[in-house]
């Protein structure tokens, strides 16, 4: 429900669509006759860190788009927890993705917590790219927006991004599904869709290789530069929420090019 003034912080990973979710939420409120502001958070310390957006929705005048205390915080990835801490008061509702964030970690910093297994449903039902629409459904419903209006407004805002009818349809389903998710209070889903950040080791008789999901930003330069196609875009995500590469150790010729190029020191193969 939107009160006289509702202050919302969105936090997650670059690539999760945090800024889109925040911007569309503000636009939805404006469509309903409220005043609303949306502003992304930029700063040097923000580079390579989580993605954060400020939204204020109000019946009155909004004088400044940033704030210190939030009424609602929507947090989509574990790594963003340290960034949202300072916005939490005893009255803040923290809505978290319970399929990627452990309830015990949320309870360390917040008392009023609400879960939704967003990543689980996005990844198993619609694909990772529909995550933002699914979360918009959850939030739209939570704020009390009408379900049919929700899609009309979202479509108006995002139609240029839907490159085909099929993608549009998938996103619509994800949004509607999100709006129907029963929010979890007290009993939460398992955080089983958390990114696994352990080193990935590959080995055969001649060589061994390593990929570090804790460092890889998913630029895929190694995939582009590998001369024999031994590296490919994998399906797992790393620390930064981006797809990390996968290595076919049999195809590899130990040329060392991937290590030479990788900007983040996240890949290498050596002769044994």
């Amino acid at each position: 429900m939107i009160h006289e003034t509702t202050i919302i912080l969105f936090a997650g990973e670059g690539g999760q669509g945090v800024q889109t979710i925040a911007e569309v939420t503000a636009a939805l409120a404006i469509g309903k006759g409220y005043n609303a502001t949306y502003i992304p958070y930029f700063g040097v310390e923000q580079r390579g860190a989580s993605s954060i957006a400020y939204v204020i929705i109000s019946k009155g005048t909004i004088y400044y788009p940033r704030f210190d205390d939030a009424d609602i915080i929507v947090v989509m990835r574990e790594r963003a927890l340290k960034d949202i801490k300072r916005f939490i008061t005893p009255n803040t509702d923290v809505i978290f993705d319970s399929s990627t964030i452990e309830a015990k970690d949320i309870h360390k910093i917040a008392t009023k917590t609400i879960g939704f297994p967003g990543s689980k449903y996005a990844l198993t039902k619609f694909g990772a790219k529909s995550y933002n629409l699914l979360v918009l459904g959850v939030i739209g419903n939570y704020l009390g927006f009408d379900k049919t209006e929700l899609w009309e407004n979202v479509f108006e805002k995002l139609k240029s991004k839907f490159k085909s009818k099929e993608i549009e349809e998938k996103n619509k389903l994800a949004l509607e599904f999100g709006a129907k998710i029963v929010l979890e209070k007290g009993e939460y889903s398992k955080a089983e869709f958390k990114a696994d950040l352990g080193d990935k080791l590959y080995r055969n008789k001649e060589r061994e290789g390593i990929i570090k999901p804790s460092l890889c930003k998913g630029c895929l330069i190694c995939v582009e530069k590998c001369p024999v196609g031994a590296l490919s875009k994998g399906s797992e995500v790393g620390f930064f929420g981006a797809n990390i590469p996968d290595l076919n150790i049999e195809k590899c010729i130990t040329c060392g090019i991937c290590k030479r190029f990788c900007p983040d020191g996240a890949v290498a193969v050596e002769k044994r």
Partner: peptide
Amino acid sequence: PHFFCPGCGHAI
């Protein structure tokens, strides 16, 4: 991980 963007030439 450092502060440069994904795929930044500076880091390379």
